[in-house]
Design a protein around this nucleic acid. Sequence first.
DNA 1: TACGTATCTGCGTGTCTACGAAGATACGTA
DNA 2: TACGTATCTTCGTAGACACGCAGATACGTA
Lengths: 121, 121
Amino acid sequence: MHQSIADFQMPTADQVDGAARALRMLADPTRIKIMWALLQGESSVNCLAELVESAPSTVSQHLAKLRLAGLVESRRDGTFIYYHAADTHVRQLLEQALFHADHAKGEHPQEHDPHHVHTLG
Amino acid sequence: MHQSIADFQMPTADQVDGAARALRMLADPTRIKIMWALLQGESSVNCLAELVESAPSTVSQHLAKLRLAGLVESRRDGTFIYYHAADTHVRQLLEQALFHADHAKGEHPQEHDPHHVHTLG
DNA sequence: TACGTATCTGCGTGTCTACGAAGATACGTA
DNA sequence: TACGTATCTTCGTAGACACGCAGATACGTA
């Protein structure tokens, strides 16, 4: 058995689970929007709720998860709590995923709109 | 509203959904093991089933998803069907995720084993 | 106290995964 | 050709997990 692959470097089960957890943290449309917004600058819960078009409680829960994962940090100013991205290397990962989304082959064959990004505000 | 972030380039909903789908495709321990194995070389279903320690039917379903996503390709040789990774730039993404798994901060504070990889075979 | 902001709780819904059993396909042999 | 074997795929199901939201609660300010 193991006919083609004899033996090779396989990551630990902890590493695999951690990588799966990290990828799953970014594998959600709402969190992608939140992270993308926070990579441009800091923002508050209600502001993000309008940007991502979700309820504030939803955004708060996502921010809690992202904060536990170490992807965002918070700063308090009065009653507001401003969130911002913790490290910048997440942008690279998201850009790769967004790039892959445009160049996907047999996944969902439709939508070829000419404008790929548009402004919000 | 939009106090800190005025307006900026926000990806399309299609792009966000596509990115989420692509990341979700890799956000599974079994699929990570499969992809990691197939990045080393081609292999068959039963061989992969032993490597990832899952039932052959499970591996087959994962391979079908990965094939639809364009991440793996297949080659038939008799009763065997050998799968291999389609593009190599997935390795970079997995390496980033595995690297992030080691350097995660407040996610799951435990396990600091000295050896980070070990051989299977 | 009154108000705005953020977070926590519970519920409904949907999606995903793993497995065994059954079906489909290809090869070798008599 | 007919049969048996090996490999892979599909089907159906059970269980776990995650998302979103409304309502209620906690926090901070005036």
